[in-house]
Design a protein around this nucleic acid. Structure first.
Lengths: 346, 346
DNA sequence: TTTTAGCACTCAATACCAGTGAGTGCTAAC
DNA sequence: GTTAGCACTCACTGGTATTGAGTGCTAAAA
């Protein structure tokens, strides 16, 4: 692939990204001064088509990039685009002001992402890997109701109401909490042994009923993983893209967006830790998404990946811009979350 | 409005709901045996149009119901549709099996609702009215990190990590928790007085730093309300309705669905406590939704409204069915939530 | 050997036009 | 009050012609 071919390919990709129209030889000759005539460009285009980088929707139309063409563009031709000052500022502000509620930040991230890119944003909050038990507390609420609160090593907190016999007193609950804490500290599910249970039940036999409920709660906390949750933003934004002129396209797009499982997979591929990942159309098996690309990157808390954000758009998306936005965004999101969850700053 | 006019109106509404095509006099005469000729029906239709119950898209087309026509239908003509056995069973099963996670149940409710109706489901989880302080616990996590857990009277649990000086010991945290609990029990925001604060600080002065953070957390819990959250399900379902042939319609629909504020309003009108509420197209101010209707109803925990579910569809929606589904659904959802949160059953 | 001009060809998109049919309103007869 | 008959409206359909952007190929120019 010689230099001029690259230039022609670059021109085709750029123009198609900008206009969504198949691009012909004349356009390239005029707009992207390569100093040669349309005829020459046509020859190059014929070669590029043979090589599989571009294709022709129909005989009398210009060329559009193929999946392979986009890939070549993203890997070799594309020049990185820095964010504008305003854009950077916008993102920074958003993360500096809003704090406190994790869900809120996630949601805002999605909105911003979609707003900046004009595509659909996805934010995935990954399931925490299962963690070990840290602490339990039984809190009396009303007569015959108490709350079990379980804290895990990784900082997750689970809670549940339970029914208690009327006979039980606050101090009993307090004692129960103490015993459970003393015995169970740091255990994972596997290590809660029968013998250990017997030991506890022996000591606390008379409150068996409450104990049962509390133990059940603890076990659930150890076993049940919070499912991945996915936040979508800016579907409406994207629909203004010219590819969505006909309703069928919109339908397949929406059907993709409702397949949460698929979206999760898109956001969590193997090449997971390289920072920003780009997946282009047909590179993904599911043929519903052959016309879409995903740009995704993980976000972290003190180095541990805990989720990822991504942008879903037509294959004709503005990769340069999206990549830099996603990159900048995940970095800021990570920082913001660290500040929030680890309690640093404010 | 005499009896026959009612019958004609009923026929028009029913047929239009079923077919989405303007309905003409001949169709009515044939399909809905009123025992009169098309010409007679035409006369009645002219009257109905004059009265504002139906309208004509263009001269050579049949009639379609106006907002007023739908309203009359819903209020007077519609016969209640009972759910089929299978449908009831489907709903019941869903709520019996899945328990544990509130978010999960909400989500499932939405999916089911949309699946049964073929429209878009909305589930709103209302903000809890602010509650009073019940209990606080400081849990040591790692060196120089602790977790503050705050339990509210109404059962809400908030938590946050804080930084602690290295010097502080577990037992100190325990003591702090005890003191705070003793002093603050049952207080609302307003009643945390300066004097009281002084009292606490006097007793626990040497741990001022931790105390500050803990108090901040408690105050936040008292003040910050969880914002309303809204879950949407089955957008894709709805798009198969014939009204969404042209892209513009889809766009306005999506734009409606992204205005969370608007949706919240739709779900929480004044006529809020009458059970199922029906709002038809133009009855709502916002002119984006003149072509849509909403059927909504609140769900409760032990009589207190804590959210609502609704169905958004074209004005041509199958009101009879949607109303019974929403009704049945909210009742079951309420029961399921009560079981979960109040800890009754399992 | 590479580039370019010229030309015939393809084919989607657009516009135009006549025909069709569902539906109406009106009038006059039942 | 009801109905048959009739003229009229108008969206929709399908066929035809026109347009124009773009191509591939060939032969001449560089």
């Amino acid at each position: 692939m010689d230099d001029r071919k690259q230039k022609v390919l670059l021109a085709i990709v750029q123009d198609f990204i900008a206009t969504a129209e198949p691009v012909g030889s004349r356009t390239i000759a005029k707009k992207y001064g390569l100093g040669v005539s349309p005829a020459t460009i046509r020859n190059e285009m014929a070669d590029l088509e043979e090589l599989g980088y571009i294709e022709q929707p129909h005989t009398s139309a210009g060329r559009i990039p193929s999946v392979r063409g986009y890939r070549y563009y993203v890997d070799y031709l594309m020049k990185k685009r820095e964010l504008s000052r305003e854009e950077e500022e916008l993102i920074r502000c958003e993360f500096e002001i809003k704090v406190k509620d994790v869900g809120k930040v996630i949601q805002k991230t999605g909105q911003l992402l979609s707003q900046l890119t004009c595509y659909t944003a996805m934010v995935l909050t990954q399931q925490m890997e299962s963690s070990s038990f840290k602490y339990v507390q039984l809190v009396p609420m009303r007569t015959s109701q108490a709350m079990v609160i379980v804290v895990m090593e990784n900082g997750a907190v689970h809670h549940r109401m339970i029914e208690t016999p009327e006979s039980i007193r606050s101090s009993d609950l307090e004692t129960l909490s103490k015993v459970l804490n003393a015995k169970l500290q740091g255990l994972t599910m596997e290590s809660i042994k029968l013998t250990l249970l017997k030991e506890i039940y022996f000591e606390m036999g008379k409150h068996k009923q409450v104990l049962d409920l509390a133990m059940e709660m603890i076990q659930d906390s150890l076993v049940l993983k919070d499912e991945d949750k996915i936040y979508l933003g800016g579907v409406f934004n994207m629909i203004n893209q010219p590819e969505f002129q006909n309703v069928e396209k919109v339908k397949t797009m929406l059907s993709i967006l409702e397949q949460e499982k698929l979206l999760c997979e898109l956001l969590t591929g193997k090449s997971w830790d390289k920072g920003v990942t780009v997946r282009i159309g047909g590179e993904i098996k599911d043929h519903d998404i052959k016309d879409y690309s995903v740009v995704a990157a993980p976000y972290t808390i003190s180095g541990r990946k805990i989720g990822s954000v991504g942008v879903l758009g037509p294959t004709r998306m503005d990769y340069a811009k999206v990549i830099s936005v996603v990159d900048f965004m995940t970095k800021n999101l990570s920082k913001a979350l660290e500040r929030m969850i680890l309690g640093r700053g404010r």
